[in-house]
């Protein structure tokens, strides 16, 4: 009987410790990814189809905290000027220069592909992982932790994510995305570089396994902590 109690205590302690570790890792990853108060950057998006044909999009991006982002396309000409503003509580606006006004967009757009890329609006969302997912530590291997992350929201297009997190610096290096049928549908790989005190995801590649299609997002001219205010993430700025 004592042995059984000991095993139960051991198992419970281990499970709690594992869950806590996983959530701690997730929290630390958020702290690394969202450490800067704000960020301004240029982005080059290269979309490659299964035949190797490439298309390029360019944009400028501003971000503050974990839930404010302004993304404005600068190329190609057919998309230049189109901008999206993401605010807390799934409030999103789209600005199309030809309509001369902003348009509130429904949060169902989050499951859609972002501007023809392999990223969905959901993937592009600047929201902390801890807020979006519950985590379980599957294992540690080499210099990474392997986490299973399940969406907190039932509306998510994914059933789970399996992510490899760098043990030393807590940035993600690899993520698998699973659909509601538990099929692996996308893979993301990351290349981080250190700019000042912060780790910057200078290159993120998302591959759609079914379509054999990939998108590489390269971030450059990155500036951190320039003092962006909430006003910089307003409809006023979106229309400018």
């Amino acid at each position: 009987m004592k042995a059984l109690i000991s095993i139960l205590i051991f198992l419970t302690t281990t499970l709690v410790a594992t869950a806590q570790n996983a959530n701690d890792i997730l929290k630390k990853m958020d702290e690394v990814l969202y450490a800067p108060k704000d960020m301004t950057a240029k982005t080059k998006i290269i979309i490659t189809d299964k035949n190797g044909n490439e298309k390029t999009r360019e944009a400028v991006m501003k971000q503050k905290g974990t839930d404010m982002r302004l993304f404005r396309f600068t190329a190609p000409a057919s998309q230049a000027g189109i901008a999206t503003l993401s605010l807390p509580n799934d409030v999103m606006y789209l600005y199309l220069p030809s309509y001369a006004k902003e348009r509130r967009i429904s949060s169902s757009v989050k499951s859609q592909k972002f501007a023809g890329t392999d990223f969905s609006y959901d993937d592009m969302e600047a929201k902390s992982y801890e807020d979006k997912y519950t985590a379980k530590l599957l294992k540690t291997e080499g210099d990474v932790y392997v986490l299973e992350m399940k969406p907190r929201s039932p509306k998510s297009q994914y059933s789970k994510l399996i992510s490899k997190i760098n043990k030393e610096n807590y940035y993600p290096v690899y993520t698998e995305y699973y659909d509601k049928g538990n099929n692996k549908i996308k893979i993301a790989t990351y290349v981080f570089e250190k700019i000042g005190n912060y780790w910057n995801p200078k290159e993120v590649t998302m591959t759609d396994l079914k379509k054999k299609h990939k998108t590489t997002m390269i971030t450059y001219d990155v500036k951190y902590d320039t003092g962006l205010s909430d006003e910089d993430f307003s409809v006023r700025k979106l229309k400018q």
Binding site: D90, R104, S106, S107
Partner: peptide, 11 residues
């Protein structure tokens, strides 16, 4: 007015 409720855009 415009809003989004349960993923549906309403105006």
């Amino acid at each position: 007015m415009a809003t989004s409720i349960a993923g549906v855009g309403l105006w």
